[in-house]
Design a protein around this nucleic acid. Structure first.
Lengths: 208, 208
DNA sequence: ATCATCTAGTGGTCTGACCACTTTTTGAAG
DNA sequence: CTTCAAAAAGTGGTCAGACCACTAGATGAT
């Protein structure tokens, strides 16, 4: 009869509770004991559901205080999944390849969505900031690309990437300026070409 | 003193156990009772760890049989994260946009990596198969693109997509043939253009 | 050799009991 | 009345033991 596992049922009801009550990041959810009473399940089942959501990074529990809704960040996930997924060598090449293609997509999107103000801001930042990382630059690009999903995937890829290649990416400021120029000109060809220069890719020959 | 939560410690030790013993998909892991004895933790704590891994889709438990390592597919993750993440309307547009861009990337990759044999096979399949879905077609494309990470991300996006738009994608066979032609010609421009025709996108005007 | 039955093993769930920690309340001293 | 330390209440963390439901393998009669 009880075809669905209790802890999954609890997860489901928690989701509903969150949607209906409009709970937001940082909000507190009922205590384990209260949940087990209200939902008519044992406390251990409630805990199993909560622990699963915690490992996913969707909630945060603080002893003595309570359980809170949390902003989603991939972090727990990536470490976990990487041991399960990133087993063979080919996977390494895939990460590299995928990250590059994704960044090019974000550039194409930014190309379409940027306005003059965006261009000015970006260039201003590149020129005036003493020292910035490659990540910070692309975070801005993806910001103007205005696509949270791309951002999320990119963040995960970035973490994979750094778990493979320890060293930070360092590039010359002029390369980034070239990219800014290409974006301002709204030329996809120039933009992609500038990106390849930045990453040291020969576009028609990137076997890796 | 016990700074790290027990269930996280158990997850960690399970990962080590899997790596060291070289356990693979489908293999059985020790029973809950045995784990709680071997690791010196209560059974409920062991269960919390297992439930979390199960919700992630990394293991599968069958009552009366045992717990098994599972092949990772976005599966549970997608459904879960979608309600927690895809709350606003903008997210819907993001899924659409991201899926399209990702598919174009796969086409570009396939363009570079395909050989004549691949082309022949693909065209043959398109012509001879009575009825195929859009998913099946792109699964083949990503197959020749030979990038498991792209495949994984695409599968997740596909599920997001269908959780938003219930209806299956149906296209004309000739559109797919056009795409095959473009790939065979190794022309990126024609390929992208054929894709846009397939998806009814005007390439320079796809605000949504 | 076959097949139904029993049994041991496994996951699923609940209860009650502590512990460690945080927040709130209480109440005495000023 | 205010202040502030002590007590109480609330919360997550963990464990042990008890049952239930289900599966697979052992048992035993035919």
């Amino acid at each position: 009869m009880t075809n669905t596992k209790v802890y999954l049922e609890i997860v489901k009801q928690l989701r509903e509770m969150i949607t209906i009550d409009g709970l937001k990041t940082g909000d507190k959810i009922p205590s384990e004991r209260e949940l087990s009473e209200r939902l008519n399940f044992g406390r251990s089942s409630v805990r199993e559901a909560l622990r699963a959501l915690e490992l996913l990074g969707l909630i945060e529990t603080r002893r003595g205080e309570g359980t809170f809704i949390r902003d989603f960040r991939g972090h727990q996930l990536v470490q976990l999944l990487s041991t399960f997924i990133l087993q063979d060598e080919r996977a390494k090449r895939d990460v590299f390849e995928t990250k590059n293609y994704l960044e090019m997509d974000c550039l194409r999107l930014a190309l379409k969505k940027m306005n003059d103000q965006n261009h000015a801001n970006l260039k201003d930042w590149v020129v005036k900031t003493d020292s910035f990382t490659d990540d910070e630059f692309f975070q801005r690009i993806i910001g103007t690309a205005d696509n949270h999903l791309f951002l999320r995937i990119w963040i995960i890829l970035k973490e994979y990437y750094y778990s493979l290649e320890a060293e930070d990416i360092v590039n010359k400021r002029e390369d980034y300026l070239l990219l800014c120029e290409a974006l301002a000109e709204k030329s996809e060809e120039k933009t992609i070409s500038a990106y390849c220069k930045l990453r040291n890719l020969s576009f028609f020959n990137d076997k890796y």
